[in-house]
Design a protein around this nucleic acid. Structure first.
Lengths: 219, 219
DNA sequence: CAATACCAAGCAAGCGCTTGGTTTGTAAAC
DNA sequence: GTTTACAAACCAAGCGCTTGCTTGGTATTG
């Protein structure tokens, strides 16, 4: 019991450290904005507001006020309001693709890889990037058709990571259902946690939640 | 093979007939609007538009044009635009609660009851009431806090139907995970089908999809 | 001394909703 | 069977406000 807790705590710290390292390297490559910089701070606040009130109900004046500038000044950083939404989504997918890849590399069996993906996605949805992840799910329609195409290309890379693992599990005989369907179901189930899962109350940890998901799939 | 198809077709017809009977009795009780009446037609169109473009992006002029009247004339039927959204949600929940109750009554074991609920909810989401169901999920935030409270009361009744069955399954030992968590996961997974499930292509029927869900849960 | 970041002011368009008046449906009164 | 009465349904016009975004100019920074 004590052993388990120690191990869990250690695993948690490892995850956090590696998450940060991944973020830093993405910032260095200019693939995501530094949350401490002007642009990054705006995107963080935008994600928060978009999640809280929805994209349409969030005005450029709200966004500007959240970072302490005038509404007109926003348009020196982004040409349109929609470009802000797109940036939130693009950077979120980039970060999460990297996080999922790291989760895959840390596991040796396909079963552990799936658990790693589930755990990582739950962490993305319910952790610091949760607001941006929720925006990705719920504000999709607010993106123009042109932007949707662009973001979808990134999303396909991300989804392929999942499908590869699920297909391997199917070949192993560990999974009965169609990998494509399973991934879609998992997308829905995991995203939806953002609307109800509150780690502080209830006592259900992220690891516990991950266990429940795996148990539900008899894996 | 031929037998199976006949049976499926018959089962499907039974479902459709009973769906219609339930709808008729709810109309008679004035709990939902007749889709052929003026109010019902507006609500149907509203659900379609809200789902297609989102509540905020749908203007009262859009709504009015969809039923062929002037925008101002809308306000003889509803006092505010939000009242239209609320009406869509309330009537959808009322109809679906009745459908779920019927599904429960038609099954004898808890396992069949769960399958009935899953099947019925998938049908609600992907059938004629799908647009309204999607609105219920994706436009929740657009409801005022006061309306949210009102609709939540109805939703609780609906959710209790699920929880009772899941708890029975847990007591039977057929379910390992927490019923509450399972229901939340199912809510997410089933709602999400609206974004990807297209019965016409792919060849996956609603019954097939139901089977996949049950298989995923090892039930 | 550029380039970048910002402000103050406001424009054009679109929004939900109101207003005053007309048409339509219905049913009793004669 | 026409007339009268009246409410519900609807139209045409537009008001007041908010929206995303622009403009012309001013600090700030390397």
């Amino acid at each position: 019991m004590f052993q388990v807790e120690l191990k869990a705590s250690y695993a948690n710290r490892t995850v956090l450290v590696s998450q940060n390292q991944i973020l830093q390297s993405l910032i260095a490559e200019n693939l995501v904005s530094d949350p401490n910089g002007a642009r990054g701070r705006l995107l963080t606040e935008a994600a928060r507001l978009f999640r809280e009130k929805g994209y349409e109900r969030t005005t450029v004046r709200d966004l500007a006020a959240a970072v302490g500038i005038q509404s007109g000044s926003l348009f020196h950083h982004f040409r349109t309001k929609e470009e802000i939404l797109k940036a939130v989504m693009v950077e979120t997918i980039r970060l999460n693709t990297a996080l999922m890849q790291a989760a895959l590399e840390a596991a040796d069996t396909n079963r552990k890889k799936l658990r790693g993906l589930v755990r990582a996605e739950l962490e993305s949805i319910n952790g610091q990037t949760g607001e941006a992840m929720a925006v990705l799910v719920f504000e999709w329609r607010s993106l123009s058709a042109a932007s949707q195409v662009e973001v979808l290309e990134l999303r396909d890379i991300y989804e392929k990571l999942w499908l590869d693992v699920l297909e391997s599990l199917k070949h192993e005989g560990a999974l009965e259902a169609d990998p494509f369907v399973v991934r879609r179901m998992l997308t829905g189930a995991l995203s939806w946690t953002v609307t109800w899962y509150k780690p502080e109350r209830g006592g259900l940890t992220l690891d516990g939640l991950t266990d429940q998901v795996m148990a539900m799939m008899a894996l």
